[in-house]
Simulated assay, not measured.
Amino acid sequence: MIQRLIIDSNMLQSEHLRYFLNTSSTNFAVLPDFAWFEIYKQRSIEAVASALSVIGDFPEQVIVLKSGREIAEIDSLTPMMPPLMQYEDTAGSIREMVNILNGPGRNAPEILDQLDRMWDGAVNFLPGMLEGAQDIMTSLPEMSEQMFKPQHLRIIRQNSRYTPEMFSSIFGAADQICETLSDGGKQRSTPSGFGEHKIHTYLYRYALALVIYLLWWIRNGNQAQKRLDRARNDLIDLSFAVYGTYYEGLMTSDKKAGWMYENLRLALDAIEMETTTNR
């Protein structure tokens, strides 16, 4: 059975990943755009070579995803998202990269220049990917007050059973956030068939993940996120969780990211079940 797992950056050099890939040739490591950002941001030949030390031994079992912006533009009517989310024939490029980084000429000026270009590309891409979402992150207190009554907040903090009214608020907020993200990304036109098929789109799943993050934030004491870098990391974790819902799961050592993935998957399953029932 094919097992394709999104690999969080904190697992790239882990023995757990090596074991996963070594166990079966039908196990695949799926690397999103932000995984590469985390690799290249170190701006060091040694650090990049180390980050690729595991997947470099299994280039045929690595799937590289396109940018989040490209994935967000895939039509919601597409029956099978993953093939369109992925670059083709990346094994050769990974193998060549690893050979260069581990070879005698890895400190050549042209190699260092290429690493700088990769770093600059990752840095320039980051603000656009997070545009709009950062505003929502800073609006968590207001969102909490608008979406939930005091008794609902107690239910969330106590991890009790959610009411139908709460689920309605959660999914309604996801719809609104999805519209906000679409506008922030200058995606003014609504994809064809979006209403019925929105669950397949990246932007809707990311919007729902933001609401899941809000639930985590409420459960853990409504602490304001004061550091921009931590807020950014939380948003990146959300993207990993979203990508995981298109495949067989998420490999991460971060409990928060794991919690967000599991609850996002449950929410999507609930939507699919309701949609099937109402047909």
Rank of each mutant, 00 (worst) to 15 (best):
D57V: 05
G68Y: 05
G132Y: 06
I7G: 09
G132C: 05
I2K: 14
K226Q: 13
Q134L: 08
A207V: 01
K256D: 13
A209W: 03
K256R: 09
E179T: 09
D75H: 09
G68C: 08
E179W: 08
S24V: 12
D229W: 04
R95M: 12
S182E: 15
L268A: 01
N220V: 13
D8C: 09
M1D: 04
F125P: 03
L101T: 15
E262L: 03
G92K: 14
P127T: 10
V30S: 05
I94Y: 11
R117T: 06
A231H: 04
V123H: 11
M81D: 03
L208V: 04
R43D: 12
Q114W: 12
I63E: 02
V98S: 11
I94T: 13
D183W: 00
E142I: 15
L264M: 07
N222K: 04
P141Q: 06
I156D: 14
E46R: 01
W217H: 06
V30K: 03
P32A: 07
I236Y: 04
S169C: 12
F167K: 02
G121P: 13
A174Q: 04
F240L: 03
D269I: 00
E274K: 14
F37V: 05
G172R: 07
P109Q: 10
Y243R: 04
L5S: 06
L153G: 08
A35E: 03
I136E: 03
G258K: 02
D237P: 02
D116V: 08
L126D: 14
N159Y: 01
D183G: 11
E110H: 14
Q151E: 15
G128T: 11
T23P: 04
G172Y: 07
E38K: 03
L214Q: 06
N278Q: 12
A35N: 07
G103E: 15
K149I: 12
K149M: 13
N10I: 08
L235E: 09
I177Q: 03
H200P: 03
D183N: 11
P127H: 14
E88V: 02
D33L: 12
V54P: 00
A108W: 10
L268V: 00
I7S: 00
D120W: 13
N159V: 11
A51I: 02
T163W: 00
R157H: 07
L140G: 11
W36C: 01
L268S: 02
P141V: 04
P79A: 06
M81Q: 02
E38G: 10
P191W: 07
E165R: 14
Q114M: 13
N102E: 15
I45E: 15
N10D: 10
G172F: 05
L208P: 03
Y202K: 05
I6L: 04
W36K: 14
G249A: 03
Y261W: 00
N263A: 01
L153F: 10
R227T: 09
E131G: 09
F148L: 01
L77N: 13
I6W: 00
W216G: 05
A35V: 15
W36E: 00
L115F: 07
Y204C: 05
S67A: 08
L12R: 04
E96A: 09
D234Y: 03
L264F: 06
M129W: 13
E73L: 13
K255A: 12
E88H: 09
L112S: 03
L84W: 06
G185T: 10
K255L: 12
